[in-house]
């Protein structure tokens, strides 16, 4: 469990990034911080592993104040995945993944064996292990980034817009992969994005932020969709533009099998209404 307790952050230039922020992030679930730029979401994320220290307030991991922990040791037990992968360009894929375990004193052969397993976990071919990051596609680099984040088997995984810079098809794939990994591993994931659809897809808990790290609304995707607390949230999730209110359009109900077409408030066809849930898309997913 991660607890933000009245946390504020004022940067040396005087700007207030986060103002009196309190939130509890439950263990073994995914919490998504979503907001536009300037909402302080990345600052909040970086306070968890002490890349940023708060000006006031406390951050607790399982009731332990992170301010009292050695930052380097703390970071080594928390996974971190960022946009543009942040891989070391002068290290091969396998060395990148094995980086932190080796820093922690794990034997190289052991760390490499584990790194190869992690490549399997994130759906990467082991043949890529000896490549340099520049030789991979953007999507592959992000997978390596996720594998590196998982390398120390951390309880906590921090993800800072990890899929923000890849094209939509690849992003979709990576999101599904993350959902599958999370079903298997149940980490405490804190995920930062500006994409509300991504937040609703991945988040058990979604926290919508206003400028300055102020919580506009926190809850499950269903709660937020059903009851946007104010206009800001309604606008952020697209409810005000009718994007979230769907109805079956009789004019479109056609086709041989009489498919019922769903249309949003703006008149845009968004999908087909089925009676049962579709089978999971990702081939790796196994029914419980």
């Amino acid at each position: 469990m991660i607890t933000f307790d009245g946390v504020s952050k004022r940067f040396p230039d005087g700007s207030l990034a986060v103002d009196d922020f309190s939130l509890t992030i439950p263990s073994r679930t995914t919490t998504v911080l979503v907001g536009s730029s300037g909402s302080g979401k990345t600052t909040l994320l970086r306070m968890i592993n002490r890349m940023v220290d708060p000006t006031s307030g406390r951050i607790l991991i399982d009731d332990e104040d992170v301010a009292g922990l050695d930052p380097v040791k703390l970071r080594r037990r928390i996974g971190y995945v960022m946009q543009n992968s942040g891989l070391l360009p002068h290290r091969t894929v396998i060395d990148n993944v094995a980086t932190v375990p080796i820093l922690e004193g794990v034997k190289k052969s052991e760390a490499h064996a584990r790194a190869l397993e992690l490549l399997d976990t994130v759906g990467l071919d082991r043949g890529l292990a000896k490549r340099y990051p520049a030789q991979l596609s953007g999507g592959q680099q992000q997978r390596v980034g996720v594998a590196r984040g998982l390398a120390v088997d951390p309880n906590i995984l921090l993800m800072d817009e990890p899929f923000g810079a890849v094209d939509p098809l690849v992003r979709d794939e990576l999101q599904q992969e993350l959902l599958r990994i999370q079903r298997d591993l149940s980490k405490t994931v804190v995920f930062v994005t500006h994409d509300i659809d991504e937040a609703f897809l991945l988040g058990d808990q979604v926290v919508i932020l206003r400028t300055g790290g102020v919580i506009a609304q926190a809850g499950t995707p269903a709660e937020i969709l059903a009851n946007p607390i104010d206009e800001f949230v309604a606008s952020f999730v697209g409810a005000d533009r009718g994007k979230r209110s769907l109805h079956v359009d009789p004019a479109h109900t056609s086709g041989e099998r009489g498919e019922r077409v769903l249309v949003d408030g703006g008149g845009r066809a968004v999908g087909i209404l089925r009676d049962e849930a579709p089978a999971p898309r990702s081939p790796g997913a196994v029914a419980p």
Partner: peptide, 24 residues
């Protein structure tokens, strides 16, 4: 990005210089 991420995964300042910044 690389500098930030090397901080994030837990390189201390000295190691960061020799293992990350100097080679790059």
């Amino acid at each position: 990005d690389v500098r930030q991420s090397s901080v994030a995964v837990g390189y201390g300042p000295v190691r960061r210089f020799f293992v990350v910044e100097l080679p790059l």
